[in-house]
């Protein structure tokens, strides 16, 4: 009982993911700055931002629904932190394991996006309303390719459970390289999920002020920012477990190091994409996702089914 509480609250639970989330934001901002040939923020910057936002005044708009306005940031935080508990960190078994937990993680990671939509809706501000509509439109375009891409490796392993997928690819050497198409699709879709450039349409600062978070001040905005950072880490850990299923049986310290390296690799990819692209329009985003990403994800599923049928014969 106490051991599992420690696991949930400290490692690899909430405290670990909190530190990892702040480190992820720092790494992202520092890489972004270095690629623009500037120095960038100091290492404590995300923590200072978080403490400052927590200590600021809380303003709730007069027309907004007070209860829902307050609850939504906490729901977003809880959902992303809960998703992390189901993803394996240093051993193939995640903290709480059950059959088909890859599907469960994808669904839990959808909840924060829905809270962003509700946050904009209940703020009763024009900018947040436009932002929340864009959040929903964007979600309907990236969610389908993401789901298909993340589930494709599981087809070869005949299982949608993390431990079984990792065990299958672990026994097959470099077979996981076959999933490279769906890895690319999933990274692009995650970029859309995290609302980063080029898919930062829902919070486009130059168009709609700050999107869904326009009316959020102080502590509530701090929780939303934290939720976004934890979402980055959770999504990166999900991609690491599904597409890079190696290094999970090497013991505690080596396992943690390999896990952190994998997350860092995905954050580097996301930061490079953020630096070299400009924001695209909503219709371009929807067209890109349905016209190119979804067929590519389907192609991966087709390849995996053919290989599986060939191997079975």
């Amino acid at each position: 009982m106490i051991l599992s509480l420690i696991k949930i609250l400290i490692f690899p639970g909430f405290l670990f993911v909190f530190v990892l989330a702040l480190a992820a934001e720092y790494a992202d901002r520092k890489l972004y700055a270095r690629m623009q040939t500037r120095i960038g923020p100091p290492w404590f910057q995300p923590f200072a931002d978080f403490v400052k936002l927590l200590s600021k005044e809380l303003i709730i708009p007069e027309l907004a629904d007070r209860t829902i306005f307050r609850i939504l940031p906490l729901v977003a935080c809880a959902a992303v932190a809960a998703a992390f508990l189901f993803i394996p960190v240093y051993n193939p078994e995640s903290l709480f394991s059950f059959k088909g937990n890859i599907v469960a993680v994808i669904y839990i990671l959808t909840i924060p996006t829905l809270t962003y939509f509700l946050a904009g809706w209940y703020s009763r501000s024009l900018y947040s309303l436009i932002g929340s509509m864009r959040v929903l439109t964007q979600m309907f375009s990236y969610e389908v390719p993401l789901l298909m891409a993340v589930l494709a490796p599981g087809i070869l392993a005949s299982s949608w459970t993390f431990s079984e997928v990792i065990a299958f690819y672990g026994s097959k050497g470099s077979l996981f390289c076959i999933n490279v198409i769906s890895f690319v699709v999933a990274v692009i879709a995650v970029q859309g999920k995290l609302e980063k450039v080029p898919f930062d349409i829902p919070e486009a600062e130059t168009e709609i002020v700050a999107g869904t978070f326009t009316e959020y001040t102080g502590p509530l905005y701090a929780y939303f920012k934290l939720a976004m950072n934890i979402q980055t880490v959770s999504a990166a850990a999900l991609l690491a477990a599904v597409f890079m299923p190696f290094g999970y049986n090497l013991g505690f310290i080596l396992g943690i190091i390999i896990f952190l390296l994998k997350i860092f690799l995905i954050i580097v990819i996301l930061a490079v994409v953020r630096t070299i692209f400009a924001r695209i329009r909503m219709d371009q985003m929807v067209m890109f996702c349905w016209k190119y990403l979804t067929p590519l994800a389907l192609l991966q599923i087709l390849i995996n089914i053919i290989i599986k049928a060939a191997a079975a014969q």
């Binding site: 623009q36 500037r38 400052k52 303003i59 002020v209 326009t214 001040t217």
Partner: peptide
């Protein structure tokens, strides 16, 4: 702009007065 790099000191430009100090 990146030339002066105010993010060194943690300065960020925000779009909404709700987030600004």
């Amino acid at each position: 702009t990146p030339v002066y790099d105010l993010e060194r000191f943690g300065v960020q430009l925000k779009g909404t007065p709700r987030h600004a100090d």
